[in-house]
């Protein structure tokens, strides 16, 4: 009875691990798409209303929602008490929240964007946003490929490695 319970636990744990890794692969392309939408929203706030950056970031946060939106809400909150320190400084203070599946490369791209955000005319800002959107599209395609290659594998791997471990231990 105890053995059965223990092996059940082992399988559950290892499949949980596998599913978590697979989730990362599943969420990343979606969040990269959200990020592109976020930059589109920010772009139109800048282009059509010349909204100051803190309010623009908040508009993005409420339009996008989820962990990606949270990034922008947090950035706006840090800026509000930054006492003039730069946007990229504020970005460094933002900690990714739970559920964020963006890789460190994705986040580096955002860090580079924050170095130019707000500093330039409307035209320059739009160009910068478009440039970063193109990069995000590339990253998204890459993430999509990684997802098809890895998502299922990790799920099976989790379940089967659990079963294998149980069999060995038995």
């Amino acid at each position: 009875m105890l053995k059965l319970l223990a092996s059940g636990l082992i399988v559950a744990a290892s499949s949980g691990l596998g599913f978590a890794v697979a989730d990362g692969y599943r969420h990343r392309p979606r969040q990269l798409r959200q990020l592109q939408f976020a930059l589109t929203v920010l772009g139109s706030e800048i282009r059509f209303r010349q909204t100051p950056l803190p309010q623009g970031l908040q508009a993005v946060a409420s339009a996008v929602g989820g962990p990606v939106g949270q990034l922008f809400a947090d950035l706006a909150a840090v800026l509000a008490r930054a006492q003039g320190r730069s946007v990229s400084w504020a970005w460094q203070q933002v900690k990714p929240c739970r559920g964020l599946a963006l890789s460190s490369r994705d986040q580096d791209l955002l860090a580079r964007l924050t170095q130019v955000l707000g500093a330039g005319t409307v035209g320059e800002q739009i160009r910068q946003l478009e440039l970063h959107m193109e990069h995000l599209q590339q990253l998204e395609q890459e993430a999509e490929r990684a997802r098809t290659a890895n998502e299922k594998i990790w799920r099976y791997l989790g379940v089967f490695s659990g079963i294998a471990l149980v069999l060995i231990l038995l």
């Binding site: 909204t51 100051p52 946007v87 955000l117 005319t121 409307v122």
Partner: peptide
């Protein structure tokens, strides 16, 4: 100067150009 300008322009040169 930079910090003060950041606050004055609300980090948004484009809005105050």
């Amino acid at each position: 100067i930079l910090e003060t300008m950041n606050i004055l322009s609300q980090y948004s040169y484009y809005a105050f150009a």
